[in-house]
Amino acid sequence: MLPESLPPAAAEPELPPYEGVSIGDIVLVVSPHGAAEAREALLAEDVIGFDTESKPTFRKAEVSTGPHLIQLATESRVYLFPVGQLPEDHGLKAILESKRILKVGFGLGSDLAQLHARLQIEARNILDLSRALRSEKPGQTLGAKTAVAQFFGRRLQKSRRTTTSNWANPRLTERQMLYAANDAHVALRVYRAALLCDPRLQERHRAGREVRQADLPHSPD
């Protein structure tokens, strides 16, 4: 059951579309300079949006070689890391394995397993909003589209054609970049909105802030 302060979700087709980020808010991390910028910005945050994309598999028993794209979002920027073009010092391990930065996203189970298998990254301090947020229907997880409708009264548009596109392509289209960026950014926005009315998330956020403060270097007396 959702917190009482949340309005009931309207029928999704009747809702206005969710605006999302613009292409100017997206940074494609394919150079050492871009990686340094991304690392500095992301390590300064207490919470970031997180998602990955993988080239789909269509044949039975075909094994995915993903992730092919990793998306990390702050309030103002979304950093896209194409795995096949990562600069040597990309900083993903430091960011995703940080215990003080909370990474929030939807349906992250397979994302975490693929990260470990392909990049040997053991992501820490992860919050899967699909499980953390309460669905109106008992026993069901809450997806990004439903969460956007309930928290913002908007319709998150998900194109199946883009979802199943080739995320391993060395040149992503603008449509792919916007789709991927919004997946991570909307998770961060939903988390921030949920903090206003969910005591369980508030408690976790406070605990994380204490860890963050404890990890900061102390000035000498």
Rank of each mutant, 00 (worst) to 15 (best):
L196T: 07
V211D: 03
G208F: 07
R206Q: 05
Q202P: 03
T164C: 13
E174N: 01
W167F: 04
E210W: 04
A184V: 13
A187Q: 03
L178R: 14
L201C: 00
E203V: 07
A181R: 05
V211Q: 01
Y179M: 03
C197V: 15
R175I: 08
D215Q: 15
A187L: 09
R192Q: 07
E210F: 07
N166F: 07
S159I: 08
L201H: 07
T164M: 15
T163D: 09
T164A: 11
E174A: 11
L201Y: 13
R212Q: 14
Q213G: 11
M177W: 00
T162Q: 11
D183W: 10
R189L: 12
R189W: 06
D183I: 04
R200L: 15
A194Q: 05
L216K: 12
R200V: 14
T163N: 00
R200Y: 05
E203M: 03
R160Y: 03
Q176F: 07
A207G: 13
V211N: 02
M177K: 09
A207N: 08
A184R: 12
D215W: 14
A168R: 05
R204I: 06
C197Q: 09
Y179E: 04
R204Y: 02
L178C: 08
R160G: 14
G208L: 05
A194H: 10
R192I: 10
R171N: 09
A207F: 08
L195R: 09
C197D: 05
P170G: 07
W167M: 08
A180S: 06
Y191Q: 02
N182C: 05
A181Q: 04
Q213F: 07
L178D: 12
R209A: 14
R204K: 10
E174D: 03
R161L: 12
T173R: 05
S159K: 14
D183V: 06
A194V: 05
D215L: 15
M177Q: 00
L178K: 13
N166I: 04
